[in-house]
Amino acid sequence: MRVLSWTRLEPVVLPIIGALLVIGLYGLLASSVANPLVLPPLGQIGDRLVAIFVDPTISVQFLDTLMRIAVGYVGGGLIGVVIGIAVGSGGWARDVVSPYLSFFRSVAPIAWVIPAAIWFGVGTPATIFVAGYAVVFPVAINTIAGLASTPVNRMRMAASAGAGRLARLVRIQLPSAAPYLLTGFRQAIAYAFMTTVGAEMVAATSGLGFLIYDARVLFDTGLMFAGILVLGALGYLADLGFLGLRRTVFRRFVGDAR
């Protein structure tokens, strides 16, 4: 009996080899180009990576970005659910709201950054607005799809047992829509990251997006790369965390976890 068989090792070993290969290839490429402005050496990226967490002037930026993403995500998510319920429960709200939903969904969130900066202020308020805007749509659209997919017989049963519209919405439709809501909220994480960084580049004076963009002015390519790595890792961790929540807290709503 072989405990360490190749089929069990493969999913762990191959990615590690892959990562080492990429790092090695990059190191070779960087040293052969020998121009830190174009491809900074690995050591320099490592230095900046440490600085992002240790140097207080830089770690503030990192926390700023996290705060904006979190606030925009929660705010936009709540609005998205409300809009989704309004449209998804049918009636006049659907006729009125859904054309606007498809129109505004097609406007790139980042296009609002200038009006938002003028109305709410440059920096944090504008960034949060734009991040929230980006989150509303995946959440709303998934909520609508989820409400629409409620089994008809369950609704009929609740209605014949005397449940009113509100009771049916809260006790039947929303739990049925929960898997869709979870999908929407998961998609929204990526959107929140993407727009926050974009907005920080255009209309903010702090944050990881600003840091990466500002590093260009100072020709600090190492800092750019370190910022990119941190963003990638943050996004990955956020997604992992969400999947963890899905498996634990929201377990009863997720079909495939059972």
């Binding site: 999913p11 990562a19 990526a190 997006g209 890792a233 996004g235």
Partner: peptide, 19 residues
Amino acid sequence: GLLTPLVTLFRFVPPLAWY
């Protein structure tokens, strides 16, 4: 297997970060 780390990392880096 080899490309997994690359794809996972890139998926979460917004395009604008590369600007």
